[in-house]
Structure formats: C-alpha cells, structure tokens
Design a protein around this nucleic acid. Structure first.
Length: 502
RNA sequence: GCUCGCGUGGUGUAGUUCGGCCCAUCAUUGCGGGCUCUCAUCCCGUUGACCCGGGUUCGAAUCCCGGCGCGAGCACCA
C-alpha cells in the first residue's frame, strides 16, 4: 500500500455530513452498545431515540446491541412486570430486529454483590450510617463523615448487617459509598452512594435481596462485565459518567466512550414522563398506554406511524447536546413520505347526508364508477363502485352539503346541490358526467358501497369517535390507508379507524 | 451556592476539532405557484439565522477574553 501524500493529510475537505457522525474509537465488529430503560412502563417517543440511535450505530459497525432492564429500584420507580415484554416488543418494532442480548439487572444481582464485597474489602467503598440530611451537609462542607474512617473489616461487617434479613440495620439506616474523595470540586461526585437497603419486594425476585445497587453502581459494573464500548445517553447523566469513571479508575477498568444528547420535548406533548402517564391512565384520563393521545410507542404504532420514519427523525436530530423542542409536524412529514406510496386510498364520509340523484330525462347513467386504489401506482388496481339502476343514492359529508352551488362528485359527475326535500329525502340532479371547468370536487360514496365506521381522533385533548361512512373494503387490520381529502388513518377493526395525521 | 454542559432562520440540523471553499447546508414550517377528477402525495419559487461586547488576524460562525441566556447534576430515582 502506498503511503498517503502529505498534502492529503493537511486539511480535510469540508463536506456536509449526512447521517450519524462517526463514533470515536470504534472498531468494526467490536462495538458493544446498550439501551437500558427502567421497566416501569412501555417505551415512549423519548425512549425511541435511545433505541434507534444505539441500534443504528450497532448496525453501522456490525456491533452488538444489548437491551438491559435497569430494575434495581423496588420502591420509587417500581418495575411493572408487564413492561418487560412491552419494551421488548417496542424495541423490536423500532429497531427492526431483536436485541442481541437481553439482561435484567435484578437477575444479575449475584454479580453486583460479588463486586460489592470485593470493593468493600479493597476499601474502595465503605458503609455510611449517616442520615441523608447529615451527609448532605457534609458534602456541602467538603468534610468527611465518621464512617469514612472505618476499617475494611468493620465495613464488611456492617455490609453483612445491611444484607442480613434479621439484621439491626433497616431501610434508611445505611448506604454503601464509593470513596471518591470529599474534596472533589464537583459536589455531585463526593463519595457517591452505591447501595441502599430496600425492603419492598421486587416483582421479579421477591424478597431475595435486602440491598439494591443504585444506577451508578449497577450500570458501571454491568457495562464493564458486558464489554460495552460506547455509551450514548442523555446529558443529564454527565455526572453519572464522572462518578462511574472515578470507580473505574480505582479498580483499573477502562471506561467506555461516552456521547450525550440533550433533553427533548415535543410541542404537542411536552416531556415524556412515564410515571405521570401511569397516574393519568389509572385515574381514567386516558384509556390505556396506547391511548392515541399519548406519546407512547404503542400509541404511535397503533396510529399507523412507521418505524422507519421515526428512525429518520432521530438520525436527522443527531447527537447534539442542545435541549430541543420539536413539533410533531416534522415527524408527520417524514411519516407521510414513508407511508404514502403504500397507502391505499379510501373514502370516508363524515357526518353523511343522503342525497337522491335524479338522473333527468334521457340521461344515461354509467353502470359503475372506477377509481384507482392509488393514483400514482396504477398497478395496484382499481376500486369499482356499482351504481344502481334508476335513481342513485349517494352520501356526502355535511360540510360539503352547505353549498347551493355545483359540486363535482370525484371521478363521477357534477351535481347541483339543491337542498330540495321530498318525501324521499334530499334530492339533487346530475348535470353532467364529463369533467368540464373546475367545479369544486367533493368526495362521496354510493350508498351501496358505504358501511358505518368511526374514526378515532384527538380534538383539543379529547378523544373523539367521529361517526361516518367508510368505503367498503377488505384491507386487513393494521393497514394504513389514506382517506381522500383528509389524510392518513390505520384500520383497527372492521368498523374502527384511528387517525394518523394529515 | 458549588459543579457541569449548551447557545446557527419559527422549528430541527450541517459547518466549529485543523480560521478563508460560508454574503452559511439540508429538512420542516409559513407564504406564493405548478401538477392532480383528493384540501393528500409530488414539483418549483420565496421569506428567514451565526446570543451580545471586545480582542487576535489580510480574513472569524469557527481562535482568545468578558458578559448574557438556557438547561442539567449535587436523590437511600433511572
């Protein structure tokens, strides 16, 4: 291989970067990434960034992607047994493949305990029996607490008492701290807590353990055990990185490369608080985790959003540390592009008004109306609406009925809207079937092609079931269709559709 | 209070490491128009930004100094 010309090294040509930036120190085939949610609910749009960006990188570098359940809190953010499966489902749907490895922190406790024993024996950690309030003061004052002077033997003994089921130490009496130094200029890093006592039974392992590691310890040990090479996480965890790095340095481990992103809000939803949503569902404000008004992955999937569109959405967002607030219209635009080509067209008439069309003397009515399933993909075939003999009964939307002028029934005929009522109902007449001029087009259905259906949509925070008539079709449940002149919707059942977006 | 991070059009983003290719990229939104027997999709056009003040330099979005603004951590949550 020839050595590179020196001038080629002098300056990179500036080019616009497309896609995700390169990962620092990444070796193809050896990258290990992880996504580590707390299983206290299903995934939200906010989580999807973690799933997607990490998965994308794993794919870019032919690396490994771990899904890890950080379920070591039995009290404040208690794990939800159902959430484990929900998250695996959401993860798989978002990334297009199953994780290479699934780990549950609660099942990894023996490993964590082993390391705790070791670190306490090595004097890297000590048991602290100060109250949280007292330690807070010590932390501010940069002064060491009395417990810090205990010997490793004494600490091991106290640690045994913390673990002991009939021990004298109960919840709140003691924590294990990492001996980082009380003089660290960053107060967040001063002898940070690694273990605490929690009596609440764990949904997965019951009352097997009395002590549970905090995130900073559990995650630090597990990342090392799994050989994680790159951590990509929120910048709110920057001090977490620093805490963990202090521990890594003590025990001689190599800390992974770490990248951060800022906080994300969506204009329409605000933040993504799983706990808040859980409360609102319990109080009956929402019907469930897949309530179309919620920013959960299950709700978005139910509404017909495309995982590829979400992927592009997050890739476009990149890895900046800026706190951002994005409008749903950005995602919607990407989603429309993703689903439009495949979405069959259907007609939905909201608040239908029945009209009898008078064919007029000598007027020849066509036997049927033929319209494409997709105007840009004619190979997808056609829809055929047979028209009855004699008088034709059609349905049009109430909002289109307000006019008294001519309107064109799309792909069929110009009619005069007369607001003339007879014993049979509203009557109008067909003026011509040829397309002449630019008579405003409205959509419609012949009554024999219409079936009652509801369209679920959100209006000002309320979930509305808009009643109407849907064109008879046999698309399977889950099909994302485009309702002509309205927008996209997903077929949820024979008579229910869920609104996606326009 | 201490510590850390971030500031490019309405929104998001590229460019900032290594100053000139940047009178600043791309997307989205808004506005205008075209295509279309859908108010969808698509196409074209257009408005619109380097937080502020100094400094270094022939030249600064990019380097230095000082402000200001926003956010996060300092939990026995993750």
């Amino acid at each position: 291989m020839e050595s590179e010309a020196p001038e080629a090294l002098e300056k990179r040509v500036k080019e616009r970067r497309i896609g995700l930036p390169e990962l620092p120190n990444a070796v193809d085939g050896e990258v290990v990434l992880r996504f580590a949610p707390n299983p206290n609910g299903p995934l939200t749009l906010g989580h999807s960034r973690g799933v997607i960006i990490n998965s994308q990188y794993a794919e870019m570098y032919n690396g490994k992607m771990i899904l890890r359940f950080d379920d070591t809190d039995t009290k404040i953010k208690r794990p939800d047994l159902k959430a484990y499966d929900w998250i695996i489902q959401d993860f798989t749907w978002l990334s297009g493949k199953e994780p290479d490895l699934i780990l549950e922190a609660s099942a990894r406790m023996p490993e964590y305990l082993t390391h705790a024993n070791e670190f306490i024996a090595a004097n890297h950690m000590y048991v602290c029996t100060c109250t949280a309030e007292d330690f807070r003061e010590l932390r501010v004052a940069k002064s060491e607490c009395p417990c810090r002077a205990n010997t490793a033997e004494k600490n091991s003994e106290l640690w045994r008492q913390m673990n002991d089921s009939d021990g004298s130490l109960v919840e709140g009496d003691a924590v294990v701290r990492v001996r980082t130094g009380m003089d660290n200029k960053n107060p967040a890093l001063r002898d940070w807590p690694a273990w605490r006592i929690q009596r609440a039974p764990h949904p997965k392992v019951g009352e097997k353990y009395r002590v549970w590691p905090l995130l900073d310890f559990q995650s630090a040990v597990e990342d090392h055990l799994q050989g994680v090479t790159h951590i990509i996480r929120g910048k709110d965890l920057m001090d977490s990185t620093r805490k963990q790095k202090l521990l890594y340095d003590m025990v001689g481990w190599k800390y992974p490369e770490t990248l951060y992103w800022g906080r994300v809000k969506v204009h329409e939803f605000g933040g993504f608080s799983t706990s808040q949503m859980k409360k609102d569902i319990q109080s009956g404000q929402f019907s469930g985790w897949d309530d179309p008004r919620l920013p959960t992955i299950s709700a978005l999937r139910r509404r017909g959003y495309d995982a590829g569109a979400m992927t592009k959405f997050w890739i476009d967002m990149g890895l900046t540390q800026k706190d951002i607030s994005v409008p749903m219209s950005t995602l919607n635009s990407l989603n429309a592009k993703a689903v439009n080509a495949e979405a069959p067209r259907l007609t939905f008439v909201r608040e239908p008004v029945s009209i009898r069309l008078d064919l007029g003397d000598g007027f020849e009515s066509p036997a049927k109306v033929t319209l494409p399933i997709h105007p840009e993909h004619l190979d997808k075939g056609v829809r055929e609406w047979p028209l009855g003999e004699g008088v034709i009964k059609v349905k049009i939307a109430k909002e289109d009925f307000t006019s008294r002028e001519e309107r064109r029934l799309k792909d069929f005929a110009d009619i005069g809207i007369k607001h003339q009522k007879t014993i049979h109902g509203w009557e109008s007449e067909i003026i011509r079937t040829e397309r002449v001029g630019n008579t405003p087009i409205i959509h419609w259905l012949p009554s024999n092609m219409a079936k009652p259906a509801v369209l679920l949509l959100e209006e000002e925070g309320e979930l509305i079931a808009a009643e109407g008539l849907l064109e008879i079709n046999d698309y399977p449940v889950g099909t994302v269709v485009q309702l002509e002149r309205m927008g996209f919707a997903r077929i949820e059942s024979n008579e229910i559709m869920i609104w996606t977006h326009s």
